[in-house]
């Protein structure tokens, strides 16, 4: 608890962002209980209604409750982002750690062939190319985003392990007879993990954005599942007569991305040991 107090001291924005991230997770987990309506139930009698007591954020072109769809959209966004970050983190860190620690021909293959191959494409283009040929769907979306997500972790982990492997405590651990796995897991991971955690937090923001972008383009989760991106795409047609269909999902994406970005910045400042903190 001490580290939370230090981290949020004099940084109200970070505190607010952390609170918002917790709120997003709670909404995603308990969407079924919180949501006032079923997000897929249509009520054509109340189509394109603006915000009212019955529908706090209005209703869409099929009379579906926008608030319920935003709430269920949170579940999709958070599920996709957490899954992508977990898989990318594990694959990227594993490859990066092995490459950085052993620094041999495996590292050359990893760095020159694998990482550079994936970096020859702008990130979202790779995901679009992948989904264009495989077809849309939740698992394919996660797979496509993992394809671009692991690179950042691999590069960062490789750099961290390359730097740390030359340090005295690693030499001491090796000299005392510790196995490579023990040196990596027990000695090096705790000393390299901090920037990777920051990367994961900022990566959550990027993944939420990428998921929403792909859904907006019709390459994400197929309808009728409510994704923030697809809600925005559907709402564009009614920009003249029902702007609330665009404003609320847009605000949801923006606030979620902002919260993870602010939290990532705060974590980076907290882990940065240069200068006084306490």
């Amino acid at each position: 608890m001490m580290f939370l107090r230090v981290m949020f001291q004099n940084n109200r924005l970070a505190l607010f962002s952390a609170g918002f991230v917790v709120l997003l997770i709670v909404v995603a987990v308990f969407a079924g209980w919180i949501s006032p309506y079923d997000p897929a139930v249509q009520d054509l009698a109340s189509r394109l209604n603006g915000p009212s007591n019955a529908h706090w954020l209005g209703s869409d072109e099929l009379g579906r409750d926008v608030l319920s769809r935003v709430i269920y959209g949170t579940r999709i966004s958070i599920t996709v982002s957490v899954a992508v970050m977990l898989v990318s983190f594990l694959i990227g860190c594993y490859l990066g750690a092995i490459g950085g620690y052993f620094n041999g021909s495996l590292d050359q293959i990893l760095n020159i062939v694998l990482i550079n191959s994936f970096m020859a494409f702008p990130g979202v283009l790779l995901a679009i190319a992948f989904i264009a040929f495989l077809g849309p769907g939740l698992s394919r979306l996660i797979l496509a985003l993992c394809l671009i997500g692991w690179i950042g972790f691999a590069r960062l982990a490789r750099g961290q392990f390359l730097k740390t492997r030359e340090m005295d405590f690693v030499t001491a651990a090796r000299a005392s007879g510790a196995s490579s796995a023990r040196v990596i897991l027990i000695h090096m991971v705790p000393n390299t993990i901090q920037p990777i955690v920051v990367q994961a937090c900022l990566g959550m923001a990027n993944t939420i954005l990428a998921e929403a972008t792909l859904s907006f383009l019709g390459l994400g989760v197929p309808p009728p599942a409510p994704s923030w991106g697809s809600m925005l795409s559907d709402g564009r047609i009614h920009l003249f007569d029902a702007p609330h269909l665009v404003v609320f999902p847009a605000a949801a994406v923006m606030l979620a991305v902002l919260a993870f970005n602010f939290l990532g910045d705060a974590l980076r400042d907290f882990f940065d040991t240069r200068g006084p903190k306490l």
Binding site: A205, G229, R236, M254
Partner: peptide, 11 residues
Amino acid sequence: LSLPNFALGPL
């Protein structure tokens, strides 16, 4: 940085 272009464009 946080305002996606698919939200900004319609707005």
